[in-house]
Design a protein around this nucleic acid. Structure first.
Lengths: 118, 118
DNA sequence: CGACAACATCACAATTTGCTTATATAACGA
DNA sequence: TCGTTATATAAGCAAATTGTGATGTTGTCG
């Protein structure tokens, strides 16, 4: 299953948002998501499984608890897929952005002269 | 339908890739995608409809042709959703990246090389 | 040992999705 | 006007997804 498919579900997106703050027990993730979406515990468990199988989360077993952690690699791929479109909303920055991502370590001395925020 | 749902389909992702190069007639998009995925014309038409209804593409009618163009706004939202995760793979670059996004104005000299009007 | 807690899996129903074939619509050109 | 081209819509079907209630499976603890 492609990362985009996995991200298609709002429950799973929420789970990933929760995981962005760091490792969380399945039960803790569950209570949040069950409340917010009105779904059952097995439903949450299934979503967690999809995240696992899609490589978006890893589990650490600790006694009877399962601690889930974010695995960023697939998100990175999504980010990479998005790269060619980024210039549509960052038109004048993409050239420099590419360079940046490649490792050019900024010989910047005059960045953001007007101090603007988008 | 959320942008992530729309991006979940490989045919639609391919269509967007083709549209990244600029406006394309439905037929041209179709011939590429039909060949690559072995699907029929109605199938492609349906995918184009999903892109339209999801706000990812717009159509310009020209006689019997329909020219599709990319509408980047939803992709931008996806990009924004991804932002909180980006530091997982760009740890030492994100500070500069932020600064960049805020208005650093690249010494660009090659804008709009083909002289196209949007 | 026995009961409870934390999670996973099973079995099945309801939707949803994506494809195909057939057909409709509309503009063009002879 | 008629046939052709370009594209969309409709009808029907198969497969995948997501949910629920029931039931496992392991640890933990008194």
């Amino acid at each position: 299953m492609h990362a985009f498919d996995i991200l298609g579900d709002p429950v799973r997106r929420r789970l990933l948002e929760l995981l962005a703050d760091g490792e969380q027990a399945a039960g803790d993730l569950g209570s949040v998501v069950q409340q917010e979406f009105g779904i059952s515990q097995p439903a949450v468990s299934r979503h967690l499984r999809v995240l696992r199988e899609g490589g978006l989360a890893t589990v650490r077993v600790d006694g009877t608890r399962r601690h889930y952690a974010l695995e960023p690699a697939p998100l990175r791929e999504v980010d990479a897929w998005l790269a060619p479109y980024r210039h549509f909303w960052e038109q004048r920055l993409d050239a420099l952005g590419t360079e940046l991502a490649r490792g050019a370590r900024a010989r910047r001395q005059d960045t953001n002269p007007k101090g603007e925020t988008p």
